[in-house]
């Protein structure tokens, strides 16, 4: 299966590319879980953010424990697969 890529452009014009692990919707917000494929002590660095499919300038951080709990559950399920 072709890997899905997330591309971000920062305020300096740098293009950053990540591999998408998962995406989910919660409380009408779209969350994306992704990695830069780097490792720390054999652990894959994983990130999660909020985006808006209708506005490509929206990029927000997760702020609640609830949101992070869902991310964790998704990663556990990915492991189970």
């Amino acid at each position: 299966m072709e890997e899905e890529k997330l591309k971000l452009i920062d305020e300096d014009g740098n293009e950053l590319e990540y591999r998408i692990l998962s995406m989910f919707i919660y409380n009408n917000k779209n969350y994306i879980v992704y990695t830069d494929d780097t490792y720390e002590a054999d652990n894959l660095n994983t990130y999660a953010s909020i985006f808006d499919p209708d506005d490509d300038t929206v990029w927000e951080e997760l702020t609640t424990d609830e949101e992070w709990d869902i991310v964790k559950k998704i990663l556990v399920e990915l492991e189970d697969k």
Binding site: D10, P53, D56
Partner: peptide
Amino acid sequence: FGHYFRIKKIYNHKKIIKVSVPPKYKKK
């Protein structure tokens, strides 16, 4: 399986001004 995910809550990039996701995530 010996595989771990390390969730990083600290964002180490600058402000993002544009986001591009695959089309399937942008369905109307």
